[in-house]
Amino acid sequence: MIIKLLLLICGLLSAASYASFVSPLQVDLAEARRGFINVANDGTEVALYELAILEWGGDGVAKQIEDPESLMVMPSIARLEPGESQRFTIVSSVQQGEQVRGFRLVIKETKLQPSEGSVNLSISYNLPVYDWPTNSSSPDSRTAESVQCSVKDGDHILTNSSSYPIRVSSAYEGIVPLTNVILPGQILRATDADLSSIDCKGLYEFIEPDPS
Rank of each mutant, 00 (worst) to 15 (best):
N160E: 01
S161H: 10
S162K: 00
S162G: 04
S162V: 02
S162H: 00
S162I: 02
Y164G: 00
Y164A: 03
Y164I: 02
Y164V: 03
Y164R: 10
P165W: 04
P165V: 01
I166G: 00
V168P: 00
V168Q: 00
S169H: 03
S169A: 09
S169K: 03
S170V: 07
S170W: 10
A171M: 08
A171W: 08
A171V: 06
Y172V: 03
Y172Q: 06
Y172P: 03
E173N: 12
E173S: 12
V176P: 07
V176K: 13
V176N: 12
P177W: 13
P177G: 10
L178Y: 15
L178F: 14
L178T: 15
T179F: 08
T179N: 12
T179W: 09
N180H: 14
N180K: 15
N180V: 04
N180P: 12
N180Q: 14
V181F: 13
V181G: 01
I182T: 05
I182R: 11
L183P: 00
G185H: 13
I187C: 04
I187D: 01
L188M: 11
L188G: 06
L188K: 05
R189I: 13
R189M: 13
D192C: 14
D192M: 13
A193C: 07
D194F: 06
S196W: 04
S196Y: 02
S197G: 07
S197F: 06
I198K: 14
I198A: 07
I198R: 14
D199G: 08
C200P: 04
C200K: 11
C200V: 08
K201C: 06
K201R: 15
K201T: 09
K201W: 03
K201Y: 05
G202L: 12
L203I: 05
L203Q: 11
L203N: 03
Y204S: 04
Y204L: 07
Y204W: 13
Y204G: 00
E205D: 13
E205V: 15
E205S: 15
F206D: 03
